[in-house]
């Protein structure tokens, strides 16, 4: 199936861009007539992935670039968020609820858990030194599916 819509965005790895990324994904998702709850879920998941790229991927280096790719196929919203940062040596451990490599920053270790809970599918590709790619999917507007 062809994409109904598609967007690509590059962001500098600065914390001001977290709210910008949320606004962009909310506007992009709007064409699927999401409920407020669905919109909140998508914004939270994007916020988590972008924040992780800033804090962990680039470790505060403001020159880092984060790529956000969104596309819509039917009622399914796909979001890919990528960085060229330090990467994740052990993905399974990183995705364990409450695991954080930065407890001194008062991180809760809930980011991946929220992405998993709020989206229908979450896949993480990463390797130490090779950046991180977070792929997420969510079916939007389930209650309107017979329209």
């Amino acid at each position: 199936m062809e994409f109904t819509n598609e967007m690509k965005l590059e962001l500098k790895a600065i914390s001001e861009n977290e709210s910008f990324a949320r606004m962009v994904i909310a506007a992009f998702t709007a064409s699927l007539n999401p409920t407020l709850e669905e919109l909140g879920d998508v914004k939270t998941a994007v916020s988590e992935a972008v924040t992780n790229a800033i804090i962990h991927g680039y470790e505060g280096n403001r020159q880092g670039v984060i790529r956000m790719h969104g596309y819509i196929k039917g009622k399914i919203l796909h979001i890919v968020i990528e960085d060229d940062g330090v990467g994740i040596p052990d993905i399974a451990r990183a995705m364990t609820p409450l695991y954080t490599s930065k407890p001194e920053l008062e991180r809760s270790g809930m980011g991946f858990s929220f992405m998993e809970a709020f989206m229908d599918e979450l896949t993480v590709e990463s390797e130490a030194g090779a950046g991180t790619k977070v792929m997420m999917k969510k079916i939007i507007g389930l209650e309107n599916k017979y329209e």
Binding site: L105, E106, G109, M110
Partner: peptide, 8 residues
């Protein structure tokens, strides 16, 4: 809006 940063 809140995310895991607020939880932390």
């Amino acid at each position: 809006f809140i995310d895991s940063s607020g939880i932390g």
